[in-house]
C-alpha cells in the first residue's frame, strides 16, 4: 500500500551535496512518514548534519530532489517553517537573555497562542521550570540542551529534526528526555529525524535507521532488521563492522 501524500513529511531523491574537498552527501534517497522516528547514524563526517541542514533550508543541495511537506525547503521556507522545528548541540539561544525571555521571543516569532502557558508547560515538562529567571548563559550544558528542546517544541511541530539532542545530558536525564520526546511524538504523531552517536538510545527511540558512511547510505531498516542483517547482537557492533569494513561495503 502506498502512503497518502499528506502522510509523507520528507521525501528525498538522489540528494547530493558536494563541497570542494568533500562529498558530504551522496545520493540520499529517503522518506519520513507522519508519526515515524528515523535515526540517522554514521561516524563523524558521514553527512548527517549536512542532510539535516538541507531539510532545514540552511544548505542548498548540489543535485537531487528534496521536499518537506511536499514543498521546497528553501523556496517555501515561509510555509514550512511554521510546521517544523529543530534542536542541535551546535546551536544555542542567546546567552545574555534569561530563559523566560528567550522562550518569549521565540514564541512571538512562532506566533504561539497562549505563550505564557505553553512556556510554563514545556519548562515543567523538561524539569527546568525553576531556571526560568536564570540567564541562559549561566545554565549547565545539560540544562541548555533541555531549553533548546523547549524552543523546538514551542510551535507544536509536525516535524522535528534533532541533531545529537542528548549529547551533553547525563545518562539518567537523557533517559527521561527520551521518554518525554517519545511520549509527545506518539501523542501528536510527530515525525522525527534523530542523529546520535549513542547506539543504545537510537535503538530505543527510532522506528527505523538509516546508516550513512562518507555520504552514502550503507543500510536502512528497523534496528532489529539491521542487527539481523549484519549478524550482530547490538547496533554498536553493526556500527563498528560498517566503519571498519567501510571501504569493502562501499566497493
Amino acid at each position: 500500500m502506498s502512503p497518502s501524500p499528506e502522510s509523507v513529511l520528507i521525501a528525498t531523491r538522489n540528494l547530493t551535496k558536494s563541497f570542494p574537498d568533500a562529498n558530504a552527501l551522496d545520493s540520499l534517497t529517503m522518506r519520513l512518514q507522519r508519526g515515524e522516528v528515523v535515526g540517522l547514524l554514521g561516524p563523524n563526517g558521514a553527512g548527517k548534519t549536512t542532510a539535516l541542514h538541507i531539510l532545514l533550508g540552511l544548505l542548498s543541495p548540489t543535485s537531487g530532489g528534496v521536499t518537506v511537506f511536499g514543498l521546497s525547503p528553501i523556496r517555501d521556507r515561509a510555509k514550512i517553517s511554521k510546521r517544523i522545528n529543530f534542536s542541535s548541540a551546535y546551536v544555542q539561544l542567546p546567552s545574555n537573555l534569561k530563559v523566560r525571555e528567550n522562550l518569549k521571543i521565540f514564541s512571538m516569532i512562532y506566533n504561539v497562542p497562549n505563550p505564557a502557558r505553553k512556556i510554563d508547560f514545556l519548562l515543567e515538562l523538561f524539569e527546568i521550570g525553576h531556571l526560568k529567571n536564570r540567564l541562559t548563559g549561566a545554565l549547565s550544558s545539560g540544562e541548555k540542551t533541555r531549553l533548546n528542546l523547549c524552543k523546538a517544541l514551542l510551535n507544536d511541530p509536525e516535524l522535528l529534526l534533532l541533531d545529537e539532542p542528548t549529547a551533553s545530558l547525563d545518562p539518567e536525564v537523557a533517559e527521561r528526555v527520551r521518554l518525554i520526546l517519545k511520549k509527545i511524538q506518539k501523542e501528536r504523531a510527530m515525525g522525527i529525524i534523530y542523529t546520535s552517536h549513542n547506539m543504545a538510545e537510537v535503538e530505543q527511540i527510532c522506528d527505523r535507521i538509516l546508516f550513512l558512511h562518507r555520504g552514502k547510505t550503507i543500510t536502512e531498516g528497523t534496528p532489529a532488521d539491521i542487527m539481523r542483517h549484519f549478524n550482530s547482537r547490538s547496533l554498536e557492533q553493526v556500527f563498528i563492522k560498517i566503519v571498519r569494513g567501510g571501504d569493502v561495503i562501499c566497493e
Binding site: G57, L58, N85, F86, Y90, V91, I109, Y110, K151
Partner: peptide, 18 residues
C-alpha cells in the same frame, strides 16, 4: 553579528521570521 556571536542565527533562519 550579535546572533552570530551567540550561535542563535540558525534558530532564526529556521524560524518563520522573514
Amino acid at each position: 553579528v550579535e546572533e552570530i556571536w551567540t550561535q542563535n542565527i540558525a534558530n532564526l533562519f529556521v524560524s518563520p521570521l522573514r
